[in-house]
Design a protein around this nucleic acid. Structure first.
Lengths: 256, 256
DNA sequence: CGACGATAGTTTACACCGTTTACGGTTTAC
DNA sequence: GTAAACCGTAAACGGTGTAAACTATCGTCG
């Protein structure tokens, strides 16, 4: 990943920015081997002493949040790439390709996955401005579902049919996602997205944590099953055989 | 919880057994306040030094496993109690009551939940014989679904329609659950159970981890939604309004 | 009863961990 | 050129899991 240098930044700022990159790099290298990420180990890997890291990060949790955010960003690129392997007008294919890549990535990088998705959400305001935004993988997934809806136009729940609390959370979302571009009457789509995300999250966490028969995990059958059961909700029942082929093709590979 | 003493045991064995109980007790007390469980703190809370615990537990992970198992066992009692609040012939009601109690318990005891269900599964053989068995909460849930099936007789997938790997894992399950009592042609029921568990697990983990709008978590609407979408799979579509009332009634309480 | 071996605890020690403090160089800015 | 901001260091504190050596107690057997 080439991190272009912004010439508007002063030399020191550029150096500082590059140190942040180093931190994330070192962290991910450690995370690739051991499930535990330690501030001291990160510092050592960068050839620094531990207290020096406190110039960049207020405490350990902030280091974790930083790394988690960057991992999510990087992983989202691979999800997007998986989607882009299909034609732009094949929104359903793009969606299942991305979700499958998500699942493959999670199984292949369990430690990174745990840091990003099995981490109690940080509600405290974070120092790094980037961290204020919502998870980028979430943005991608909503986009992909949105595309399916625009192309195929499945039925979404009327926002007034939804329970009061749900309606409120859709009209005035806490995390400023891209919900704003949706007209009020289309906000039900976000609820559908949440339903899908919940199911996807359930399988993947179960699989990554190993709370399932290893053979079933290996095969990915439960993952496929979840997708299949959700497909009708977004109007993809008939297309499912074709989509399943896309999934199975992707299950064969490893994820990087 | 009265831990009856087995008179067949020698005095020393009884004392040892009681120390195990103390360990779990101290651990849970600590877990109620702080998310981190430390071997040293447990020892201190029991008035012992840390190395002494190594007479009972080979290492830290084994302590965690022990505590996780006992927590699961204790929590299962409350799930079962929730089910028993309904008539024995109301299997659907009992099932949703137990699952709702599960969800409530998880939200009320996030640290304990994390230790039991968000813990990478221990594949190593554990010292304590109890630990070899499967999670008792899992046994309860399978029982409850089994009861629904016996009473209502919903359609289950024919085992030969399932993918090869799935069929293999159902015919010869790795974790020796109570699958053995099921005739081969009824093993599809276990697959249905796994589907349900996957979905339930997804919502609850998302909720406990806080990866959802707090208002939605508070209301439990996504949880209800998951149950509602799964209900038809086990033939409970028409009964859903009644079941939803049971759920909502339980959502009002806190769990102990 | 007395002795011996297993058991259950101790103290000590080591290597890690997150974090704070005080200090010294560089780099920037005025 | 000088003052300030920045970036790193070393030292230290209290915390963690774990290993080793040692000791007191308990249960059993001669």
């Amino acid at each position: 990943m080439p991190h272009l240098v912004d010439p508007t930044l002063t030399r020191r700022e550029r150096q500082r920015e590059s140190t942040y990159v180093d931190i994330v790099e070192a962290s991910r290298a450690l995370l690739a081997e051991s499930p535990e990420l330690s501030l001291r180990a990160v510092a050592a890997k960068m050839g620094m002493t531990a207290p020096a890291l406190y110039r960049y990060v207020a405490n350990y949790q902030e280091l974790v949040d930083l790394v988690a955010f960057e991992i999510d960003k990087a992983a989202t690129l691979t999800f997007a790439a998986a989607a882009d392997a299909l034609e732009p007008d094949d929104a359903p294919g793009r969606l299942v390709a991305a979700t499958t890549e998500f699942r493959q990535w999670a199984l292949g990088n369990p430690h990174e996955f745990a840091i990003v998705f099995a981490n109690p959400v940080a509600e405290a305001v974070c120092v790094r401005r980037d961290l204020l935004t919502v998870a980028s993988s979430g943005l991608l997934m909503t986009d992909l579902i949105h595309d399916v809806w625009r192309q195929r136009g499945f039925a979404i729940p009327a926002i007034d049919d939804l329970p009061d609390v749900v309606r409120a959370s859709l009209e005035d979302p806490l995390i400023p996602a891209k919900v704003e571009d949706l007209a009020r009457e289309d906000r039900g789509l976000v609820w559908v997205y949440m339903q899908g995300w919940t199911q996807l999250y359930g399988v993947v966490v179960l699989e990554v944590m190993g709370h399932m028969d290893p053979r079933v995990i290996e095969s990915g059958e439960m993952f496929i099953d979840v997708i299949r059961r959700f497909a009708p909700t977004i109007g993809l029942a008939e297309e499912m055989p074709r989509l399943e082929a896309i999934i199975r093709e992707r299950l064969g590979r490893a994820s990087g």
